[in-house]
Design a binder for these strands. Structure first.
Lengths: 353, 353
DNA sequence: TTGTATGCGTTATCAA
DNA sequence: TTGATAACGCATACAA
């Protein structure tokens, strides 16, 4: 026998104990002003000593809301949480949401979504709103948006869809990265990205890079964006080719820190010193950016803040369902560490002759 | 205007459309056997075309349950999810739970718990059960256990508390580690642990180590457990002292992979080769154990399985609240990689003379 | 086989 | 200021 089967207290128990009606108890509970100070006090005491708490299901049914926000990831929690960035984001989200009296429901239902069906909790009124973390395919999104349940895209942005979005300013981040490199003398910079251009964040960073290159009057052909590779496969060959070219880049901007770490390590293995020979910049300011040798210059995104901001947005949306959708872009900041420096007077060529 | 304000469908809408009573619809929904095949078919069709789903709040209220499991972490999601081990565990948990029709509610309420109050969702019937991931202080646990809501401790174990527990077999893991080292010739082994002996998992691993050492007829004084240190502070000095001792250990068993990586890197920095001079074993089989150089010999814990098993346990508990509590210990397996090898014929002393 | 009616626990309306 | 009561959406005991 595990627990005593104490019957759960209801508002009736409190009313009986206080010698009043359940209406009075409810009024006290939701502190309506028009309650006699003496009864208010008496009822409050009884509530406290009994340890009564209004039942969630009853309350939800009556109020036609649940004060619960659904949370979905793509492709899966374990994939997405490998990136510390998202963990901090969820922490910010959860903390703020909870402070405001909301709960977070982990949204499974990926299988249903994959078949273009709504996840169960979206069809049954189990959540008041939904937050989508990471990139979701467009048709999946469309299925979700046919609901009357508000949706927020976190760390993603669809400019032309009727949906609230919140993400970081990758355009500015890439610009800052280019500006920094140019300011210390680089004129041949390559941007490295995974081949997932449908991700808005990725495309925006690339856009920012290209625009900044043009703004500085640099040649797009010798400041290329390289993205048609699979890491561990084509990437080494691509890098080798650029290193072998005397006109090759003296700096790499990578679309995130994971890639930047990979590239830096690869370079060092080949005898290319970072930053003496070649500079490297990352994105996100993951923990690894600080602990890596050399510590990475990177574009810092305040992921905790992003999560906290998301909770605000979703709560405001709940209060004002009819307001126009909002696309919010959070500023980012370049953190200069030790993976960037002035380019060598004459950049060597690898393999060394 | 964001979404069409389509009024949510209720069972009445379906009944009207089908020209029957709501009872009939409900019976079809919960496929009670005694419904005429023709009406059953008709109602089913209408449900499908209308896209009706029973409302969660109404259902929960009527059924006096929520099919929702609360999930709490200590000290915080971000702290605990830094460890990939826990991410995989949550993945397993979430996947199985969802398959069985349950939802996962992220339990905030740490502040309340810290003040020895129950988290809100535990007092209001918002969840049917609670899963605690990681180590919680005993008095916190006691507060939680006074509820009639079932609790499951995941990756932790309290032998004498009336609470279901599920964790890995650290005792066996440490034994296997010692056996392996002894079998390849080691006779001087030290166990390294953080100074958090109140964690059952930690204490159990230490117990397993001590018992195995004794079983092999080895001297406990030259096969010590070292735990009174803060990493980055006292630990280097402790290791240095052992290395300087000609009778010092030829192998370290570390209480987890993070520590093992730290120790290995420190040793290599000092010119101590792993495994030629000294062997190192970790615990958990984190990703880092595979990617580290050299790859770590470690005690593998199937964290995904642990999570999946937890979901089973909690569901069974829900079905049989009166059954005696269960303490379940999942087997572990030593994975031999490249951080262990035969000890040197004569172990050098560091600093080298 | 199907329909009627009740109650789950709450909030809110209206009357007293 | 307080109380009686309806309604939220559903499942089920019981009646038909």
């Amino acid at each position: 026998m595990i627990h005593g089967m104490i019957k759960r207290l209801t508002i009736h128990d409190v009313a009986k104990e206080a010698g009043c009606s359940i209406a009075t108890v409810s009024l006290v509970l939701n502190n309506s002003g028009r309650i006699g100070p003496d009864t208010r006090h008496r009822v409050t005491e009884i509530i406290k000593t009994l340890g009564y708490q209004p039942n969630t299901s009853g309350r939800n049914l009556r109020l036609q809301r649940t004060d619960t926000i659904g949370l979905m990831f793509n492709p899966s929690p374990s994939k997405i949480f490998k990136n510390i960035f998202y963990i901090d984001m969820m922490e910010g989200l959860e903390e703020k949401l909870c402070q405001r009296g909301f709960s977070l429901l982990l949204g499974s239902g990926r299988e249903e979504l994959a078949r273009d069906n709504l996840p169960k909790f979206m069809r049954t009124g189990a959540v008041d709103a939904l937050i989508l973390m990471g990139h979701f395919p467009e048709n999946t999104l469309d299925v979700l948006l046919r609901t009357r349940t508000p949706v927020l895209l976190l760390d993603s942005l669809h400019p032309h869809k009727e949906v609230d979005c919140l993400t970081s300013d990758g355009f500015s981040g890439a610009s800052q990265a280019v500006d920094h490199l140019v300011s210390i003398g680089h004129t041949r910079i390559a941007m490295l990205s995974y081949d997932i251009l449908e991700y808005h964040n990725v495309m925006t960073r690339i856009d920012g890079f290209r625009t900044a290159i043009k703004r500085h009057g640099l040649d797009a052909r010798i400041n290329p964006v390289v993205h048609d590779f699979a890491i561990n496969e084509d990437l080494p060959a691509k890098i080798d080719a650029m290193l072998a070219d005397p006109e090759g880049p003296t700096a790499f901007i990578c679309v995130n820190d994971t890639l930047a770490v990979y590239v830096t390590d690869y370079l060092m293995d080949r005898g290319v010193n970072v930053p003496e020979h070649v500079s490297v910049i990352g994105f996100d300011d993951d923990t690894i950016a600080r602990t890596h040798q050399p510590p990475l210059t990177t574009v810092r995104i305040d992921s905790f803040f992003l999560g906290a901001k998301a909770s605000e947005l979703v709560i405001e949306r709940l209060k004002a369902p009819q307001e126009p959708v909002r696309k919010i872009i959070v500023p980012v900041e370049l953190i200069v560490r030790e993976s960037t420096g002035a380019p060598p007077a004459i950049r060597p060529v690898w393999p060394r002759k």
